[in-house]
């Protein structure tokens, strides 16, 4: 039996463990907009094309993101699943991450690029 996956912050005050597929998410320093880490190392506002990591790769990606203090604020690993070509939120924080990627649920003209 392998060691238990390490504890990680999963956004807000919530904690979880590093299990399963992860994307790296944060808020952009300059305008606070929710962003996701892509394979080419860039940060983009759409979750759908985000890079997906597992295990130690996820931790390594998070560590690199954390060093980018002048670009993003508060990076952490979120649970995702790959659905065909796109990446969508998953796991316990599903609702929170759905709202982060799509915008508030209360008025359509506040929403972001991705529809709920």
């Amino acid at each position: 039996m392998a060691d238990k996956p390490v504890k990680i912050s999963t956004g807000g005050v919530k904690k979880g463990r590093n299990e399963g597929e992860k994307a790296v998410t944060a808020n952009r320093l300059s305008d606070g907009i929710t962003v996701y880490l892509y394979d080419d190392g860039s940060w983009q506002d759409a979750l759908r094309g985000a890079a997906v990591f597992e295990g130690d790769d996820a931790l390594a990606a998070l560590e690199q993101a954390t060093a980018q203090e002048t670009i993003v604020v508060g990076p952490y690993l979120m649970d995702v699943v790959q659905d065909g070509d796109t990446v969508v939120p998953a796991g316990r924080a599903l609702l929170r991450e759905t709202i982060r990627s799509a915008g508030p649920t209360i008025k359509s003209n506040y929403s972001r690029t991705e529809a709920l």
């Binding site: 808020n27 606070g32 907009i33 929710t34 709202i99 982060r100 915008g103 508030p104 972001r112």
Partner: peptide
């Protein structure tokens, strides 16, 4: 963070 908070700037889910 404490400096921006003392000026009312929070970071929320989608933006400041």
């Amino acid at each position: 963070k404490p400096l921006r908070l003392m000026n009312g700037v929070y970071l929320q889910l989608h933006a400041y």
